[in-house]
Design a protein around this nucleic acid. Structure first.
Lengths: 154, 154
DNA sequence: CTCAAATCGTGCGTACACACACGATGTAGC
DNA sequence: GCTACATCGTGTGTGTACGCACGATTTGAG
């Protein structure tokens, strides 16, 4: 039985180290680590609404909006009116955005490799699964906090 | 061999979920998740300089300063001149700070439990070890960055 | 002892994370 | 139709993460 109290701090340290390193690596290209996550999410799907983009990242819709405003002035993404819902706006990568993302993907390869090397190859799948379970478990907890309904399966 | 590209996003999702949940849990007490980390770091050591505190969290010194200014007005911490180094200031928990920390520790027990339950007990030690190795590996990489004047573009 | 380099705290600027409130639009119930 | 209610984007405010530059002090080399 490991010390339960170490887990949150270890998770925090690992994430912050990754975030810092990525920001440093991307600095010469004028892009942040979180902007990279946004570009990556866009690159892996058709045009989607801002809400849907925020849901997939995952990030807060108002945070995503601020990032989109920035990225739009840099010509990396473009926003159009939604074809059937005039409240919503669709977001998509521009050609420059796709190019920039591919470049950043290559630049960040060394970081992904370095992170992966810290794991025994046999443990990698399980490690990622645990991270995912932690996220799901905590996110479910937030929901059940408000309406007190059963998360009995969907 | 797991998909290397999933690891960074899984780590990010898990951390953000933890951070959000903790902020929500602490909101009624007027304290944030990161302030809790600061208080926890102070509680497990004697009075230390701001620099040392930042190193242990880990966080940026200027970030820590902003947090200290806030926490000082709330009476949770106090800063004094360093006995032998007049540049530095020592930081310590006040009595109210210690009380608040104990309270928050109890409040956050459910989150630690929930996170821990997402891991098979046998895997917990190894999971934490991997997180630590990832952090160390990436932090080392930042340092060796200065030596490598290689800008391999794509 | 003197002067250059390292270190401490501070202040400023940018970007993210999120909460909350608002107006505009979409949808469901009657 | 028309009224509740949900959803989308926007705007504002607070807190955190970090880089960079500055003045003040300590430290180390000569």
């Amino acid at each position: 039985m490991a010390d339960k109290s170490e887990l949150p701090l270890a998770l925090r340290s690992a994430y912050l180290a990754m975030h810092r390193t990525t920001d440093t690596q991307f600095a010469p290209y004028g892009v942040t680590a979180d902007q990279f996550v946004l570009l990556a999410t866009l690159s892996r799907g058709d045009a989607m609404t801002q809400r849907e983009l925020a849901r997939r990242m995952p990030s807060d819709p108002s945070t995503v909006r601020a990032m989109l405003v920035l990225l739009e002035t840099q010509g990396l993404i473009e926003r159009d009116v939604h074809p059937s819902d005039s409240r919503a706006r669709t977001v998509a990568l521009t050609a420059a955005g796709k190019r920039k993302f591919r470049q950043l993907w290559n630049v960040s390869e060394s970081i992904r490799t370095k992170m992966f090397e810290a794991i025994q190859p046999d443990d990698a799948v399980e490690f990622i699964r645990i991270l995912t379970r932690i996220a799901e478990s905590l996110n479910d907890a937030i929901l059940s906090e408000s309406n007190r309904t059963q998360a009995n399966e969907v």
